[in-house]
Design a protein around this nucleic acid. Structure first.
Lengths: 253, 253
DNA sequence: CGCGAGCTTGATGCCGATCAATGCATGTGG
DNA sequence: CCACATGCATTGATCGGCATCAAGCTCGCG
């Protein structure tokens, strides 16, 4: 197994063996199991899933978990850290298609063609659980709750993408940024973090790529929100002061 | 079961019973089986799928197959006709998220929440096969090829959406239209139709909504292509004269 | 301390939205 | 069969939002 750093490909290794009780990495004891694949699965099923998801790997900041064209073998669950996925056109233009945080799954893009169609890049030092897909399919033929959860996660990914299409197709710059921030705070909140104070893991340029805007436009929108008392922005540190104003921008108009 | 016409909800009926040999509607004899769910499935599996997909319904032009908020129970395979799917924001803005033709599946948006998150509207008189999803999950636990094909179709939907995000996020009007036309001709060709002569099933406004453009911009782009000798456009009848020029617009820059 | 990546802010220009008028096909009722 | 309405498409004129170009600024880090 190998991952790619920004400029080279290096071998990566499973996490060093740990005393089982020192760091509980099993699905059964993972604090993300209510967000991840095990959701709704019986204890017996989770135990089986544990044997399947034996492999955890670290991905340093800036390295890619997989790349366009890589053969598809596994899904990945983010255990810690933060990722972006991006697609590229032939001419070099690329587009960030999503940001993934703890408990979210990566790799669905590879199932259809047996090859990945996007890059997955760690935005900070991260750890992922490796889920061999053929084994996951086998197990999900045994456990219908696992099967259904897998389908739900994929369906939500489709729905999420539709939401981004709506954003890209019909919203203006400030509305896009507001929608982006609300989505982030919501997901952070679901993980027990504050809904008002957040640290962005990505650059203005990456936000812009995701939102179909240039980095200067993103920066200006941040400044505008700050002037209007909606946000407090200091580089990547953002505090949401007027949550309702953001909602109003996204929904009403 | 009911569908909604443009302004009202009306009962729809399964297609009238047909002499089995008169019109073969079984998956096993469907000419779309190489594009649809049965792909790769054993004869025994297709036979089982046939019993599950017993219900076929007609959807008249302008009617909706399902709507945002409708409870999710089934996937739908387009047998004949043409659909669009669209999502809407609270303030009424909406966005066409896709166009579906024969052999393509509709309804994945509903799995995650048990309710549909978009509308599916017939753009011409159409027929769909109704695939009860719980039964499909049951059957796909028995037939791994069916399970895998389902996953592939969902994965391709995700990849397709990523492509649209790239288009919406980083392409200019003419490039978007070129990409749209190439995608259409390619899919039509896969169904045995000409890759150069096509009849658009959707209005300029619907194309514009899909591409994140206003209808006037779409119209101007068509006119531009016609002036440049790339297309011949007469209302909804389009002939591609210079396929390579379209490709160049999309890929190179 | 000084370098560089990333961020902010300003000035200008362009692409596509908007507003508006006309054209064209289809269908309906007199 | 024509008159008229209606929905859709085309084309022109103008406007505005975001991209682009350009110049400083901030902060982390070797």
């Amino acid at each position: 197994m190998s991952i790619h750093t920004a400029h080279e490909t290096v071998a990566i290794h499973p996490l060093p063996p740990l005393h089982a009780h020192a760091l509980k990495v099993a699905c059964s004891s993972c604090n993300l199991r209510e967000l991840c694949l095990p959701l709704g699965l019986s204890p017996a099923g989770v135990e089986r899933l544990d044997t399947l998801v034996a492999n955890r790997t670290s991905v340093p900041r800036g390295a890619t978990l997989y790349r366009i064209g890589d053969p598809f073998r596994s899904l990945y669950a983010v255990r810690t850290g933060f990722f972006k996925t991006r697609v590229s056109a032939e001419d070099g233009r690329d587009q960030v298609t999503g940001f993934q945080m703890a408990g979210e799954l990566l790799g669905f893009d590879g199932i259809g063609t047996e090859h990945h169609s996007c890059d997955a890049v760690a935005l900070e030092d991260s750890q992922v659980c490796v889920i061999p897909f053929d084994q996951l399919e086998n197990l999900s033929r045994e456990f219908s709750e696992l099967q259904h959860q897998l389908h739900k996660v994929m369906s939500r990914e489709i729905v999420r993408d539709h939401g981004v299409m709506l954003l890209l197709g019909s919203m203006r710059a400030e509305e896009r940024l507001a929608a982006f921030l609300l989505n982030l705070t919501q997901r952070l909140q679901a993980r027990g973090f504050s809904a008002s104070a957040l640290v962005l893991r990505m650059t203005r340029e990456e936000i812009g790529s995701y939102l179909g805007l240039k980095l200067e436009t993103v920066s200006r929108a941040f400044s505008k929100f700050q002037d209007d008392g909606v946000l407090e922005v200091k580089q990547r540190h953002v505090r949401v002061l007027d949550d309702a104003a953001l909602r109003l921008l996204v929904n009403g108009c």
